[in-house]
Amino acid sequence: MTMIQTQPQEPTLRESRNTSEDAVTFVTRDVTVHYGAKKALDNVSLDINKNDVTALIGPSGCGKSTYLRCLNRMNDIIPGCRVSGRILLDGEDVYAKSMDVVHLRARVGMVFQKPNPFPKSIYENVAYGPRIHGIARDRAHLDGIVFTSLEKAGLLGEVKDRLHEPGTSLSGGQQQRLCIARAIAVQPEVILMDEPCSALDPIATAKIEELMDELRINYSIVIVTHSMQQAARVSQRTSFFHLGVIVETGETEQIFTNPIDRRTQDYITGRFG
């Protein structure tokens, strides 16, 4: 789904931070995913750098969401899904027996395509994660976490007077920022975002993009997006997926201005997909 903008802008490219080789959060090698008999991902290898926004782009059905959901093992709940290959989070194998999936998901937060706040109050939405993980020492500490998370998600100003109204009463863009606040309330290392703006209007999208830029100071972000402009605006590194394989990975600026592969060139210029 591409975003509709009234005025198409020239993608503004950001300088990517200089990331040294050791500042890598996820190392993935030869990741192959089957849904039943169907192969969705074929030998995908990719590194996710710390404090970068990594954008995964590609046409529908190319496997980018599948790849994203491997990183926090959300694919586990899909019946018939098999994952092979190696996914290392700070050197730990995500699919190892010793890896506790609940702990993993606390370390790797996720924001979904459609805003999905719990049908509870705004406060409860954010407090839920810290509460089940036992992060907060007492009520005051929990309040602090909730306020900080809402603040970081840029939502506090809009909701501080109605923390006890249901989260579902917010607008779509606010709901998505609430979901981001909920994700960062458990202080993850990585935030995965699966097309977080596809259900939002341009203004709400702009807010979320701004937010991503602030969040990457503390977190690593992986975002799946169908909007090339968005990838160009928010990410430092971009990976182009096509038919279950990675065609090209590189600095965002290089991918968008000087792609190596012919297919990348075709996709970013809108010739297919």
Binding site: K114, F118, Y128, G129, I132
Partner: peptide, 15 residues
């Protein structure tokens, strides 16, 4: 119950 609610809960690390 929509699957998005389950995903949301699992996503923040609920068992």
């Amino acid at each position: 119950v929509p699957p998005s609610i389950r995903e949301a809960a699992l996503g923040v690390g609920a068992s």
